[in-house]
């Protein structure tokens, strides 16, 4: 059992949860994730380790409540427990001093991006952070990211904060100008956003790393459920990734496989709604 030390809401449905997991906290590196099971009989879901305090033996999770399991997780009060946490899993972000890098985050992807961006800044990179979302309330971690970013640029689809439009428009401006053009781009967010970033950087031949989010179970390479197509080859995101060269990823296949259990998810969501209404 892993105790929840703090649980704060950063944006609607987005929580920052600090939980004890001393073994994971001691060795985790940026880019790695944990497999979390909230309760007995629950589902195993992957969540990025946003931050860690090895001394306190805690890790930080940024959780967007999108379905049954994540909703249960964000509802755990301080002092409550998460049943299982296994990690750190996956290959850590390859950190190097490229000089100038752009870190692009969308939605909860911004939380996944946070440890990567921080590690890149620590390694001496000049980091430009671009974060985007539908509207002002869902823009998260802007202050935290600004703390180490050269500049932090924000976009919203409705223009309620920062520039109106998508993150790709801002990135395109950077790419066009050789004085601001990044040597590497790191993009984490919904599949369509990562795809758009990869398509944008391709003609500029700027190395683009994306963090993929397929459905996972064990997270140890045992089941093959997380397989993705990279350069036409089958790879397991939990052990070979989750970060891959965005120019080689088959995003269509990833997006498609993510819909496998949509029917099940809808049914569970309906049940939850009924029981809420009955209560």
């Amino acid at each position: 059992m892993y105790e929840v030390k703090s649980n704060e809401m950063l944006a609607p449905n987005l929580h920052k949860i600090v939980v004890t997991a001393p073994r994971v906290a001691a060795v985790r590196k940026a880019g790695q994730f944990a497999i979390v099971r909230v309760e007995k009989g629950g589902e195993r879901i992957p969540l990025t380790i946003g931050d860690a305090d090895p001394l306190a033996g805690t890790i930080t999770l940024f959780v967007q409540a999108v379905g049954a399991t994540t909703r249960k997780l964000v509802a755990i009060p301080v002092g409550g427990h998460v049943r299982d946490i296994a990690g750190p899993l996956g290959v850590p972000t390859h950190i190097e001093n490229w000089g100038r890098v752009a870190c692009v985050g969308g939605g909860v992807g911004t939380a996944v991006l946070y440890p990567m961006a921080k590690a890149l800044a620590d390694a001496g990179n000049e980091v430009t952070t671009i974060i985007g979302g539908r509207s002002k309330p869902v823009i998260i971690l802007a202050d935290e990211l600004s703390a180490f970013s050269q500049q932090t640029l924000i976009t919203t689809e409705d223009g309620s904060l920062g520039r109106k439009g998508f993150v790709t428009a801002v990135l395109e401006d950077l790419l066009k100008d050789s004085k601001s053009s990044p040597m590497s781009v790191f993009a984490v967010g919904p599949v369509p956003m990562m795809r758009a970033v990869a398509e944008l950087t391709r003609p500029y031949q700027v190395k683009t790393i994306v963090s993929l989010n397929p459905i996972m179970i064990d997270g140890t390479g045992m089941c093959g459920g997380c397989r993705v197509l990279i350069g036409g080859e089958v790879r397991f995101a939990c052990v070979d990734g989750p970060e891959f060269d965005g120019h080689l990823v088959d995003f269509n296949n990833l997006a498609d496989r993510l819909t496998t259990y949509r029917e099940h998810e809808c049914r569970i969501a309906l049940k939850e709604k009924e029981s809420r209404e009955a209560a």
């Binding site: 064990d218 089941c223 093959g224 498609d256 496998t260």
Partner: peptide, 26 residues
């Protein structure tokens, strides 16, 4: 010995294709 041998045939990544390990673990 928990590493599935993949089929290596077209269509392996379609929705509805499982490795035995994934199917049985679920």
């Amino acid at each position: 010995a928990g590493l599935p041998v993949m089929l290596g045939i077209p269509g392996e990544n379609l929705k509805g294709v499982y490795s035995a390990n994934e199917y049985l673990t679920r």
